[in-house]
């Protein structure tokens, strides 16, 4: 089921160079609810992992633990060989390397689109203003909202806002991008414009963890599908195998509900 536990070698801290994000035995509770139960997950450099599962299965929480927006009760999470530090300057530095895209976009409402994309470069990476703007404009063009640079987020459609949010995350040159249900708050016709940007990113070799309900995206862009239910990883497989021939009953049940109607 999972081919983890490669890194647990007490002799030398030499995880396989390919393993970018490694979760080992991660547990988390929300009060009495055991949202994450012994999660082991390894994400390799350049891999696109799509996490699917029913609501409340813990997939968003899993995504948010990777940059420690959610703390965990036990287990370890390492990014590029470094364990996630405690809250503070060091964690902030590490977070800069992990791009995050939220369901509700969360663009800075009091800043223009351009400022949204330059802010992290200026304040976290300490780049100079001109270079930051140049890069921001290039990224905005890449996600197709270059002409909106001087507007405020509220003046943009949901799809445009989400693409700006992707540009904002990319501006930090992240090692890995986390997408927490990036299309769930969008109108159907705007979903595609966001998915296309994500497809392009995947083709460009970005390491991605995507929590989504978009099965089409999972089929076409994922290297691996992780199916979660009730706080556990129930099944991990290649997308074609998972969708055509799921092994677990829970996955069969889930797929039968979403694929046939």
């Amino acid at each position: 089921m999972s081919e983890v536990s490669v890194t647990k070698d007490p002799g030398g801290p030499a995880p396989a160079v390919d393993d970018l994000v490694v979760l080992t035995g991660v547990n988390k509770h929300f009060g009495a609810l055991h949202v994450l139960q012994d999660i082991d997950l390894t994400i390799k450099r350049g891999e696109v992992v799509v996490v699917i599962g029913p609501s409340g299965s813990g997939k968003s929480t899993l995504c948010r633990t990777i940059n420690r927006l959610e703390t965990v009760d036990s287990g370890s999470i390492t990014i590029d060989g470094k364990p996630l530090p405690q809250e503070g300057r060091e964690l902030a530095r590490l977070r800069a390397d992990v791009g995050m895209v939220f369901q509700s976009f969360n663009l800075f409402a009091h800043k223009t689109v351009l400022e949204n994309v330059t802010l992290g470069q200026l304040k976290v990476r300490k780049s100079d203003k001109k270079a930051a703007e140049q890069k921001a404009r290039a990224l905005l063009d890449r996600v197709g909202v270059g002409s909106q640079a001087d507007k405020y987020p509220a003046q943009l459609s949901g799809g445009q806002q989400q693409r700006v949010a992707i540009a904002r995350a990319l501006a930090m040159d992240p090692k890995v991008m986390l997408f927490d249900e990036p299309t769930s708050a969008l109108d159907p016709e705007m979903i595609n414009e966001v998915l296309e940007v994500m497809q392009q990113l995947a083709r460009d070799g970005m390491t991605m963890v995507v929590v989504t309900h978009e099965m089409g995206f999972a089929r076409s862009a994922a290297n691996r599908v992780v199916f979660m239910a009730d706080g556990k990883i129930v099944e991990e497989a290649e997308p074609t195998q998972f969708f055509n021939n799921p092994r677990s009953d829970r996955a069969k049940d889930f797929l039968s509900k979403i694929l046939h109607h």
């Binding site: 940059n67 927006l69 809250e87 503070g88 300057r89 902030a92 530095r93 590490l94 977070r95 800069a96 390397d97 992990v98 791009g99 995050m100 939220f102 509700s104 969360n106 663009l107 800075f108 409402a109 009091h110 802010l119 992290g120 304040k123 976290v124 949010a165 904002r168 995350a169 501006a171 930090m172």
Partner: peptide, 25 residues
């Protein structure tokens, strides 16, 4: 909204930067 601070933290801003540049304004 909490998401504003989360977004700021997720691009690597420290608590002080988040408060000063995103939340307080």
């Amino acid at each position: 909204p909490l998401g504003q601070a989360e977004a700021a933290r997720s691009i690597g801003m420290t608590f002080m930067q988040t408060l000063r540049m995103i939340v307080l304004p």
